[in-house]
Design a protein around this nucleic acid. Structure first.
Lengths: 248, 248
DNA sequence: ACGGCGATTATGTATATACATATTGGAACG
DNA sequence: CGTTCCAATATGTATATACATAATCGCCGT
């Protein structure tokens, strides 16, 4: 009777039982065999099917519920949810890695470094209420001899005081910050823009050529840390995001 | 989606113990109190601290590990991971919702509908190996009287046969598919582009004006389902992605 | 018929226990 | 001195059990 019983000899993989239950059910949902609204077997039925304890089944179902694939209702059972899950995992690229993946030598070059009391615009960008010291950086990421991206960054020195001791002459502030400040939240804005003269000049492209602009704000435990704007020439860059609707 | 849910209802009532342990530890990590590399207390220490069983502590730590915040090593303990976690949750917008959020009336209009055997290009876009029937759709999303986005879509009819019975005259294929096909994986490509004449014409903008292009491929249980390309005039659109660090 | 109330049921959380597994530190041995 | 091997230890998984909680079913009395 049991759907299981036999060990998978083939893969040689030894996955845990609750993991196996989880992926069995997930596969049935994702394949469409169990449509949205379908009631999946009760815990005690799965307990019998897999010949295991309720805790084991419960672990699998709880994870599926947390992942949003199913909905659990007391006294009624567990049901396949509507595939409403419009969330996704986006991979954020490290520009160095991206450039080196192209087989080109990477280099960062600082254009400007300015410490100042935050202007109104700075505070808007960072999401700050109070005034305080900020570090404004501008730099170029190169792929070989060609400019690859222009970076305009603000760092909130009240949150990252150590940044004041760093010159950022040839190390990019992004990796530097990532290695030092744990971030708890971030926000991206992605848009297209025509290059103005300054940008065209820095990136060595035609004025009004299309550019991809990626802006990121980052917080660490409620405190704004940094705002950065990356500007890429349209030809040089495609953002790629690959994802699954939920956890596996 | 982050497994480290922050569903802290501010009423603060009745959260489970393992949930509280989890968020205690998460807060210490995100606030920086426990830096990357720091060894967090052993399970048996937390057991004593919270006066609970090891299973309860284990549940909290397992979730933190799955979320990528900590790394667990047998015989050594659990350690705060480097904040390398460059993954993010991206909200995928439903264009209708987006337009209506602007206070403008939304409308979808089909420009073209073509059923054909997949061309080589179709197969590349969809990620198909074998030939088969596809549905090629082109349509315009309107915000009020102005074109808001141009949509070019391929649907793999071998995966979604029902689509052949739908005209898609004034209902957009996106929401139609989401309500019908559970997707298991997707891939986005985002880039900037200058409008060519066809696009400029459809969107009623100047030729060579910058546009944001979002391409999405979707799979359901290993089968390619659809490829869609959204083209937005640069002024009309900013993609926003807000997220917390999760899975590595 | 109808409304209320208790019994039933499925899930939610937690406990104590057991054994498996990976890894480390140190003792034993050549 | 170095290598092998064992015991200690922390995590990984699973069991059986218990009680709490929410929702539903159906009985019962008016």
């Amino acid at each position: 009777m049991s759907l299981v019983e036999t060990d998978d000899i083939e893969g040689g993989e030894s996955i845990s039982l609750h993991q196996r239950i989880l992926s069995d059910i997930r596969d049935r949902i994702l394949s469409g065999a169990w449509a949205p609204g379908h009631r999946i077997p009760f815990e005690h039925e799965l307990t019998a099917q897999y010949n295991c304890s309720r805790m084991t089944v419960n672990k699998a179902l709880s994870q599926l519920a947390k992942a949003g694939l199913i909905e659990r209702r007391r006294r009624s059972g567990s049901f396949v949810r509507q595939p409403q899950s419009q969330a996704a995992v986006l991979e954020l690229h490290d520009i160095r890695i991206e450039v080196e993946a192209l087989g080109l030598p990477y280099r960062y070059e600082r254009l400007e470094r300015l410490k100042r009391r935050s202007s109104a615009e700075d505070r808007t960008l960072l999401g700050l209420n109070a005034s305080g010291p900020v570090l404004a950086l501008e730099g170029l990421h190169f792929a070989g001899e060609r400019p690859f991206a222009l970076e305009q960054r603000l760092i909130n020195l009240s949150a990252v005081a150590e940044a004041d001791e760093e010159e950022f002459l040839d190390i990019a502030p992004g990796p530097w910050l990532i290695g030092r400040v744990p971030w708890s939240e971030a926000e991206h804005r992605i848009r297209a823009m025509a290059a103005d003269e300054t940008i065209a000049d820095a990136l060595d492209i035609d004025a009004s050529a299309p550019c991809l602009v990626v802006e990121r704000r980052t917080w660490s435990a409620e405190h704004p840390v940094t705002h950065v704007r990356f500007i890429y020439p349209a030809e040089s860059h495609t953002l790629v995001a690959r994802f699954t609707p939920s956890q596996g």
